[in-house]
């Protein structure tokens, strides 16, 4: 979808973020079951996201929900960090 953004240095997979950073989801890559479920629970483009804990599994906040997922799966969420 929008993976080649105008500011590629700002749009990156959540696994590259550090704890406490927040921003906006730009794209969920892949169309497997996990990507579908992530989108169903609100990880859609435009949703606010924050990293609560890094490592594996990571804990992320999407909208008002908190989820833990493994790095390999969190990596398919790309977002733009707030400045």
């Amino acid at each position: 979808m929008e993976s080649n953004s105008k500011l590629p240095q700002q749009t990156m997979p959540l696994t590259k973020w550090i704890a406490g950073e927040e921003g906006v989801i730009e794209a969920i890559e892949g169309s497997n079951r996990l990507a579908l479920r992530l989108r169903e629970v609100g990880a859609v483009p435009g949703a606010l996201v924050r990293i609560l804990r890094t490592g594996c599994p990571v804990i992320i906040q999407v909208g008002t929900s908190r989820f833990c997922l493994r790095n390999v799966d969190a990596g398919c969420i790309r977002g733009r960090r707030a400045a």
Binding site: L34, I59, R66, F67, R70, D73
Partner: peptide, 10 residues
């Protein structure tokens, strides 16, 4: 292969 894991922390 290892499978996706997504778990809500209520």
């Amino acid at each position: 292969e290892s499978t996706p894991f997504i778990l809500e922390l209520p």
